[in-house]
C-alpha cells in the first residue's frame, strides 16, 4: 500500500521539474522558474503611460536595467537583444525587449525613446522616479548604485537580462557575459516549453 502511494508524488515532482526524462534541453541562463521575486513592475513609458507585465501578454519579454551614459555594457546588451531577435527569425516578432533606466535623472523620456529606437524601433525604454526605480530593482534582486567618476557619475548596476513567458512568468536570468546565441537558444527552449 505504502509503496504504491509513492508513485503519484514522483510523477508530480517530475512534472514540476520538467526534466526527469532527461531529453529536455537545458538552459544556458539561470533557471529561476517559480521565483517569488521579479513578479511585476509599474513604470512609465516615454509617453507617460504606466506599464506593467500585463501589457505584454502574448510576448516573451526580455528585460534589463541600464543607463544611456554607459558607453559599453548597455549598448552591448541592447545590440545583443537586437541580434537575439534576428536569430529567432519569425519568432523574433514574439519578443518584447524592455530597457529600464537606473538613471532617471539624466535619462529623460525623450532620450530614452531615441536611445532604444536606435537599436530597434520595437524596443521599449521605461523609467520612473527614484523611489519606483529602487522598488523595481529590489523586486528583481538587481543592484545599482550611483558612484562619482571625477566630474560626473556612473551608475554601477547588475547586468542580468530577465526573460518572461507570454503569461508574464519569470523563467530566466541571463548573465551579461553570454553572447546572443545562448540567449536565442534559451528563448527557443522556453518557447517550446510554454507554447
Amino acid at each position: 500500500m505504502r509503496r504504491f502511494s509513492k508513485w503519484p508524488w514522483i510523477l508530480l515532482l517530475c512534472a514540476a521539474a520538467a526534466g526527469c526524462g532527461g531529453d529536455e534541453p537545458k538552459f544556458n541562463g539561470i533557471d529561476v522558474t517559480g521565483a517569488d521575486w521579479g513578479r511585476d513592475f509599474r513604470l512609465q513609458d516615454p509617453d507617460g503611460r504606466t506599464r506593467s507585465l500585463a501589457d505584454f501578454r502574448g510576448k516573451y519579454v526580455m528585460l534589463f536595467f541600464g543607463f544611456t551614459h554607459c558607453p559599453d555594457v548597455c549598448p552591448t546588451a541592447l545590440t545583443r537583444a537586437k541580434e537575439v531577435k534576428r536569430l529567432l527569425g519569425a519568432d523574433g516578432e514574439r519578443l518584447q525587449v524592455i530597457f529600464v533606466t537606473v538613471d532617471p535623472e539624466r535619462d529623460t523620456p525623450v532620450l530614452l525613446r531615441e536611445y532604444t529606437a536606435a537599436f530597434d524601433p520595437s524596443f521599449l525604454g521605461l523609467r520612473d522616479d527614484t523611489d519606483a526605480t529602487k522598488r523595481t530593482a529590489a523586486e528583481f534582486r538587481a543592484f545599482y548604485e550611483k558612484v562619482p567618476t571625477g566630474a560626473g557619475y556612473a551608475v554601477n548596476h547588475s547586468a542580468f537580462t530577465y526573460v518572461f513567458d507570454p503569461q508574464g512568468r519569470l523563467h530566466l536570468a541571463m548573465p551579461h557575459l553570454q553572447s546572443a546565441e545562448p540567449y536565442a537558444a534559451d528563448l527557443l527552449v522556453l518557447m517550446k516549453r510554454t507554447s
Partner: peptide, 16 residues
C-alpha cells in the same frame, strides 16, 4: 576622463 569598465560578480562597474 579615462575610464575602466569591469564586470564584478555580474555587476557592471565603471570608474575613472
Amino acid at each position: 576622463e579615462l575610464h575602466e569598465v569591469r564586470m564584478e560578480k555580474d555587476v557592471m562597474k565603471m570608474r575613472a
